[in-house]
Structure formats: structure tokens, C-alpha cells
């Protein structure tokens, strides 16, 4: 790792001023991606602004079916929130399968979505839940937030402070984890609620997380795992790498959709 300077923020405002004072700085949340990336010298920020001690960014609150998850909430705390499990157990189940127990104790939902790894789990959940990403200065709909591979609508010093969503009537998530990295080779989050059916796919799209209209139509007509049997998934916009071809991922999209609906 190249040399860096560590700063600990005590509040969102403090984090903003620490960030602006540094030359080439990055926000650090749980660090489960950023520290590993710095160790490989693929990132070399001159300064790190640690958000892990900003208390206002932590915790899950559920009021009726309105959910708010602080950006600094760890995957473990999302997975083990009884209040959240009461209205949307699918997101708890998703969080309980990110990385391993030690990673879940550090990694946060805010860090994950701000990084927007194309194989991360949370982007599919937030897109399917039609969630709103709250930052220090505005609110951004999930559909506008995830803009590409490792790309988001966030501007340079903007901080994700929370995510909010209305818990749908039904929600389910299924992923095919890469046997080595455990990242999603394809993960599908499905929801059924007042706004209709939404199907969001992570780990497969060559431009990051996306919704699939064909699968949504089929499940809107009939909410059942076998309803997707006749849907065609076009492999031309899917990733191909040493782990899986685009055709293989196209098949996984359908299989994971079936499993997600069965789990919902």
C-alpha cells in the first residue's frame, strides 16, 4: 500500500470539510473493498476520511412499512435486524450472504452502493425495491443512482447517508455465487407491490445492474417461478469473463429469477 493519511470524521459535516481539505481523498466506510484495493496498489488516495464513527449514519428504522437504513449500517446489522425481517426479510437474507462473517461485521450498505461493483448484491435490491438513496445534499432514485460499472450519480465529495424504501408485498433474492470470490455471478432481486413487479439483475449486465422488462411482464401476468419459462434473456448485453460466458449468465438470470420468486 502506498502512503496515505487517515482522518476520522465525527459527523457528516466534519467528513465534508476533511474531504475538501485533502488533495486526492476518498471516503472510507467498512473498507472491505477500498483497503484491499489499496493493498494491491490499484488505488492510492493521499487521504482517507473514515465515516465509520458517524453515529447519525448508523442503524435501521422501520415505521409501518417505511424502511430507512443508515449508510453506515453493516451487512451484519442489516442481516440481523428483527424489525427489518418483519417487513422485508429478503434484504436481510441478501445481507447475510455477502462475503463472510468477518466482512459482514465491517462492510456497510452505503459503502457497497457507493462503490457499485457490478457483482455486488445490494444494487439489485435497491433497484427492485425502487429505493431512494439519501445523500448529504439530495435524494436520488435507485434507477438514477446506478449509472454504470463502478459508476454512480454521486458527485466528488457527496456522501450517501441512508437508503429508504417502502417494503413491498413480496420480495425475494437469489444469487449464484462465484465459487471462489462469493460475489454474484448473477443475482436477481424480485419484488411485487403496489407499483407492480420489478426484477433487477446484478452480476450479469455489462453495464451494471439492470431491470428486465420481459421477466417483469411475465411475472406481472402470473407470479409464479414457472411463469418465466418462456421469457427470452438476450445475452448480447451481458458480461462474459473467465467465470461465465454471456449465454451462461443469460440462463442464470432466468434460473435465479425462478428461485427468487420461489423464495419471496
Amino acid at each position: 500500500m502506498y502512503a496515505t493519511h487517515y482522518h476520522r470524521a465525527s459527523s457528516v459535516q466534519d467528513a465534508l470539510s476533511l474531504k475538501s481539505a485533502a488533495e486526492d481523498s476518498r471516503y472510507l466506510s467498512g473498507g472491505m473493498t477500498l483497503i484491499a484495493t489499496m493493498k494491491q496498489r490499484l488505488a492510492a488516495p493521499t487521504d482517507l476520511v473514515d465515516l465509520r464513527h458517524v453515529e447519525a449514519m448508523k442503524g435501521v428504522t422501520v415505521a409501518g412499512r417505511t424502511v430507512r437504513i443508515g449508510a453506515g449500517t453493516t451487512h451484519y446489522d442489516v442481516a440481523s435486524s428483527a424489525a427489518l425481517a418483519g417487513v422485508c426479510p429478503a434484504i436481510c437474507a441478501l445481507a447475510s450472504h455477502i462475503g463472510d462473517p468477518h466482512v459482514r461485521h465491517m462492510g456497510t450498505i452505503g459503502g457497497s452502493i457507493a462503490n457499485n461493483d457490478p457483482a455486488a448484491d445490494y444494487p439489485s435490491a435497491l433497484l427492485a425495491l425502487d429505493a431512494v438513496i439519501v445523500t448529504d445534499r439530495r435524494e436520488i432514485g435507485a434507477a438514477d443512482f446506478f449509472t454504470g460499472l463502478f459508476e454512480t450519480a454521486l458527485v466528488e465529495d457527496e456522501i450517501v447517508t441512508a437508503v429508504t424504501f417502502e417494503a413491498p408485498e413480496k420480495a425475494g433474492y437469489a444469487k449464484f455465487p462465484n465459487p471462489a470470490s462469493r460475489y454474484a455471478m448473477t443475482g436477481v432481486f424480485v419484488t411485487k407491490g403496489a407499483g407492480g413487479v420489478r426484477v433487477a439483475v446484478t452480476g450479469a449486465g455489462s453495464d451494471g445492474v439492470f431491470r428486465h422488462a420481459g421477466l417483469e411482464q411475465a411475472l406481472s401476468a402470473r407470479w409464479s417461478p414457472d411463469a418465466v419459462a418462456g421469457v427470452a434473456v438476450d445475452p448480447s448485453n451481458l458480461m462474459a469473463d473467465l467465470h461465465a460466458s454471456a449465454d451462461y449468465r443469460a440462463n442464470l438470470v432466468k434460473v435465479m429469477t425462478k428461485r427468487a420468486v420461489a423464495a419471496a
Binding site: Y6, R8, M32, A36, K39, Y76, H102, H105, M106
Partner: peptide
């Protein structure tokens, strides 16, 4: 040294963490 193997696990404030993926300053 790539956060995979878990030989570095310690407890921080009562929870298991991978000490190879956390700065001492953190």
C-alpha cells in the same frame, strides 16, 4: 493478504474482523 483466508481474524469491539483488511488507525 487478500482478505480470503481468515488466519488474521481478531475481535474488534466484540465482533470478528479480518485484521489484514483494517488499518491500525481505523
Amino acid at each position: 493478504d487478500t482478505s480470503q483466508c481468515g488466519t488474521c481474524v481478531v475481535h474488534m469491539d466484540g465482533r470478528s474482523v479480518k485484521s489484514c483488511s483494517i488499518l491500525a488507525a481505523q
